[in-house]
Design a protein around this nucleic acid. Structure first.
Length: 620
RNA sequence: GGUUUCGUAGCUCAAUUGGAUAGAGCACCUGACUACGGAUCAGGAGGUUUGGGGUUCGAAUCCCUACGAGACCA
């Protein structure tokens, strides 16, 4: 008899990559595997049956035990009460399992406690595993495209979320065995770029980053705002003369001039292209400074100015294949009603591209360059529809990579006043925010006065590390899919559920390890005959969950899972730290064990924070 | 108008994907040993999971509906 009690993963309509994932059991610790085998034996022995996929969950804190086996699902097939099933299995395990020391049954929940020897073995395995947290190469490669800024304005908080997510997901995939190519597609041409160019031509008077002291991207952004101001004035003036709002928006002198500039650029007009190059150069330099500060880099940068003409040949191909159809005005469309989408324009009647045309071409280009097995785009959820359309078209065209594309759609960062709008000046600037965070870190550190022995340069590095820790953690601890709120009035915290909390725990751990070294204590896990305290067992158990957590984070593309893990681990360790003395314990085995445990926690915290792109200090 | 996402403590977020008495942090109140770092720890208070129906052993989670918020498509 077979009983179904496994969990089925949800499926995602547009992503074979994701929907094909099944929770694998290969990431569980060896102790978990053994325990499951023992439960299987118990079920076999008690009820003469087997079950397919047996699920263990961590026991809730308010109950005694570490692992919980839920028996509700078995009641129908066994025709017994859930308590009775739990009781029988529990009794069998205590008598026959080498791991189980005790159990209790609450309704349909069988809570199991493990022997000290089991925990010693688990920690021993973790300590011995030099690649703990890293999987061997799985032979799959994935391209992660993220950041993708516009060169008409500086980066803001929304970009920071994007950057942190893309960077962290890339690290997580890598730890899970993927070969990762990080790419960035710079949106460096188009009407919005021409707007700042025009305003600069009109008002710039030769201003440069050097002459103004402004960072290049901020300088360009300033003229983008100037354009908008003047444009609005012109519209208002036309409306005052009796024109409708719509007509005025189309006929204001500056918008006409900007459009003219765009045509000149497309025709390669020398003066225009020179200005474009000059201003974009400033912006790239500014962006690079911000990326450097954040510790973010790319393996390959694509520029839209090189790719915006791509894709037209694919339209041609699609027409021949009958995937697209042409209207009388020569515009090209695709009917995606079967996929639950609309009719979608893929090429304008005058032969010019729309976004989707370019994306078709760029995706083809990326595939040609790298032949990755999988492609990910880290882009805000405002473009959900766009990506659904893009992937649907790729499938219709029969592209080999169509099934392997995934849009990592993340929620917007909102302000208390609502959405950030750069033209209305309601943005939180990335550079400002990083600077402000560093200042907070400095103030806080000075107050506490713990690093008086640091040289000036060393201290500055620490402030920066803490600032980025706080900022990145703030952005990564929330489920990527959900929108999140940032309140500039309440600056990002350094206490509680924060990056610095975890960084602090690491610093304190390092302090312990330094002391162990100076005391001549060697970290060691006793083989037998040492009673592991329940708080210690909790820490060991949590450590053992780490590989499975990385696997989930990789499957779900969610750094938030790693963030929460690091926080919980730090919190558990702090409890242990407050509860038990490490060096004052009379039992030398206890001292060695606790130092070994501390070393393992330090290593794991460092690794987990590393997956978030956050550095941890040895002192703070 | 059509499509779609969301609504959990005063605030910001969790909840092992349908499991136990819905958990953390912030803010608020009360405590912490000359043992290792108090950016810490222990405790208290705080909830009709937006309202209303339904599905079943069991719902914040799935279905229907009303209200509210966001996004996208012309």
């Amino acid at each position: 008899m077979q009983i179904e009690c496994g969990l089925q993963r949800g499926t995602f309509a547009f992503c074979a990559w994701r929907s094909s994932k099944v929770y694998s059991s290969d990431m569980q610790s060896t102790i978990e595997t053994t325990l499951k085998q023992d439960i299987h034996s118990a079920i076999q022995a008690c009820f003469e049956t087997t079950i397919d996929d047996l699920v263990l969950q961590p026991t809730k804190k308010e109950f005694e035990g570490t692992y919980t086996f839920v028996t509700f699902a078995l009641t129908k097939a066994l025709r017994r009460a859930p308590q009775q099933i739990g009781q029988q299995i529990g009794e069998y395990l205590v008598g026959n399992s080498s791991l189980v020391s005790g159990f209790n049954v609450v309704q349909g929940f069988l809570n199991l406690s493990l022997k000290s020897s089991a925990w010693l073995q688990v920690l021993q395995d973790i300590v011995a595993d030099s690649s703990f947290g890293n999987q061997p190469a799985n032979g799959q490669s994935v391209m992660v495209e993220f950041s993708s800024p516009n060169t008409n304005k500086p980066l803001h908080l929304g970009h920071l979320r994007n950057n942190c997510l893309g960077d962290s997901v890339a690290r997580i995939l890598k730890a899970n065995g993927y070969e990762v190519v990080k790419t960035c597609l710079v949106n460096d041409r188009g009407i919005h770029i021409c707007k700042s160019m025009l305003a600069y031509q009109k008002l710039g008077q030769g201003e440069t980053p050097e002459s103004s002291g402004l960072k290049g991207d901020h300088l360009a952004g300033k003229y983008y705002v100037e354009f908008d101001k003047e444009y609005k004035r012109q519209i208002a003036a036309l409306v005052a003369e009796g024109m409708t709002e719509d007509a005025a928006a189309k006929q204001a002198p500056w918008i006409l001039e900007a459009q003219d500039l765009l045509i000149k650029w497309e025709n390669g007009d020398e003066e225009t292209v020179t200005l474009w190059k000059k201003m974009n150069g400033w912006v790239y330099e500014g962006f690079q400074q911000t990326y450097d500060k954040m510790g973010i880099s790319f393996d390959k940068t694509y520029y839209e100015s090189n790719t915006y003409l791509l894709g037209k040949d694919i339209i041609e191909e699609g027409l021949k294949k009958g995937v697209f159809y042409q209207k009388e005005d020569q515009s090209v469309w695709i009917d995606l009603t079967e996929e639950g989408l609309d009719h979608k324009l893929v090429l304008r009647g005058n032969g010019t591209s729309v976004y989707i045309t370019q994306d078709l071409g760029t995706t083809e280009l990326k595939y040609g360059d790298y032949h990755n097995d999988r492609y990910m785009w880290v882009v805000g959820n405002e473009q959900d529809y766009h990506f659904n359309v893009l992937f649907a078209i790729l499938k219709r065209l029969g592209r080999p990579y169509a099934q392997e594309c995934f849009h990592l759609s993340y929620g917007m960062v909102d302000l208390p006043s609502g959405k950030m709008k750069s033209r209305e000046g309601t943005v939180v600037d990335a550079d400002d925010l990083i600077l402000q965070m560093a200042q907070t870190a400095e103030n806080r550190t000075r107050e506490l006065g713990k690093i008086e022995d640091f040289a000036g340069d060393e201290a500055r590095k620490l402030y920066h590390m803490l600032a980025l820790g706080a900022l990145k953690y703030f952005l990564l601890k929330v489920d990527p899919k959900k929108r999140m709120l940032f309140n500039p009035e309440e600056s990002i915290d350094f206490q509680g559920h924060t990056g610095p909390f975890i960084q602090y725990t690491h610093a304190r751990l390092c302090s312990i390890l330094r002391k162990a070294e100076s005391n001549g204590v060697v970290a060691a896990v006793p083989a037998e005959g040492f009673a592991v305290h329940s708080t210690e067992a909790e820490v060991v158990f949590y450590l053992s969950q780490y590989p499975a957590r990385i696997q989930s984070a990789s499957d779900e593309f969610s750094p938030a899972l790693i963030s929460l893990y690091a926080f919980e681990l730090a919190k558990l360790y702090n409890q242990f730290y407050a509860e038990l003395s490490i060096f004052a314990d009379p039992d030398p085995q206890a001292v060695q064990f606790r130092v070994a445990l501390s070393a393992a926690v330090a290593k794991t915290i460092r690794h987990a924070m590393g997956l978030l792109g956050i550095d941890v200090p040895e002192k703070m």
